[in-house]
């Protein structure tokens, strides 16, 4: 096999038409993210399998210890049902973490430098990465929200009060998207500054998982003042709360949950601010 057929195939040196560079770059990076994910089966199973397992096991194990709402006539909400929006957030968190880790791999394997020398705006590199991660997280979490309630019919979950209407599904979709954007942007920020996968795992255990635990996903507010404040100051609390609001029918369990408008505002701001920081840091410090 010859490396070159002389002069038969000429490389034209005329300038190639550059279309909308920003869109193309974001799009192609996002698509790459999704394709890579789908080609790594273990990632697919890990990201969606673990939260579902958590949901079933914690739900079953803690079902006796929690009781929310419910009057004399109504049964109230099981822990598993309470836990559902939290698990959706956990799926988002895991997927965001894994897609952010790929930045570290891209950098170490050399792929990232190839992207950084391309004439594309740095913001489109960030956008591509985050859109890819968001698409994956959103898809899996949304799938979970639809499939999980069906588990009650095969005995893996207790009966639920939750009803999936068109409104609640659209609401859930939008909220999951906002949460995904925020968490992927957060993961990007860490991944950009950390040069090893091991280092990232430390951040995951010390920052990202505690953030999820204190978001009202796992348990509602407590009597502890400092913990209550931590929950209140945690931006993810408002994502989980918003998701809970759009998915819950029984208003009696929503006492103490922040109002929907506040959830939308905080979650959107969280994503927007982190995205801006990501763009800034990518421009300032190429880190390759």
């Amino acid at each position: 096999m010859s490396m070159m057929q002389p002069s038969t195939t000429a490389i034209s040196t005329e300038r190639v038409q550059t279309g909308n560079a920003w869109l193309w770059a974001s799009w192609t990076l996002a698509v790459r993210e999704v394709v890579r994910f789908l080609r790594q089966r273990s990632r697919v199973t890990g990201a969606i399998g673990q939260p579902i397992l958590f949901w079933i096991l914690f739900g079953a194990g803690l079902s006796g210890s929690f009781q929310f709402g419910g009057g004399d006539t109504t049964a109230g909400m099981s822990f598993q049902e309470y836990f559902l929006p939290g698990v959706a957030a956990l799926i988002v968190l895991f997927t965001s973490i894994f897609s952010s880790i790929s930045i570290i791999q891209d950098r170490n394997e050399g792929f990232l430098q190839g992207v950084l020398v391309a004439p594309v705006p740095r913001s489109s590199i960030v956008m591509g990465k985050i859109l890819g991660g968001t698409a994956l997280a959103l898809l899996q979490a949304f799938l979970f929200v639809i499939v999980a309630p069906l588990l009650q019919f095969v005995g893996l979950a207790p009966p639920m009060t939750l009803q999936l209407s068109a409104f609640s599904l659209i609401g859930a979709f939008l909220f999951l998207m906002l949460i995904s954007l925020g968490l992927t942007s957060l993961g990007y920020l860490f991944a950009w500054k950390i040069d090893s996968v091991q280092g990232y795992h430390a951040v995951m255990s010390l920052v990202l998982l505690p953030m999820w635990l204190m978001s009202g996903a796992f348990f509602p507010g407590t009597d502890s003042v400092w913990l209550t404040w931590l929950i209140r100051l945690n931006p993810l609390t408002y994502g989980v709360a918003g998701l809970r609001r759009v998915l819950t029918v029984d208003q009696s369990v929503l006492v103490g949950v922040p109002p929907l408008w506040l959830c939308v505002v905080v979650t959107t701001l969280f994503a927007a601010v982190l995205f801006a920081i990501d763009v800034w840091i990518t421009r300032r410090d190429q880190a390759v």
């Binding site: 279309g19 909308n20 560079a21 770059a25 394709v35 391309a118 594309v120």
Partner: peptide, 30 residues
């Protein structure tokens, strides 16, 4: 400029053609 680095910048999980398509998109080709 066209740049090649010491460590290959190919995405191993993509095919040769996909790698090239991806590169083309980064340079506004389609």
């Amino acid at each position: 400029i066209g740049v090649t680095f010491q460590s290959p910048s190919l995405d191993g999980k993509l095919t040769v053609r996909e790698n090239l398509v991806h590169q083309g998109h980064l340079y506004g080709l389609s």
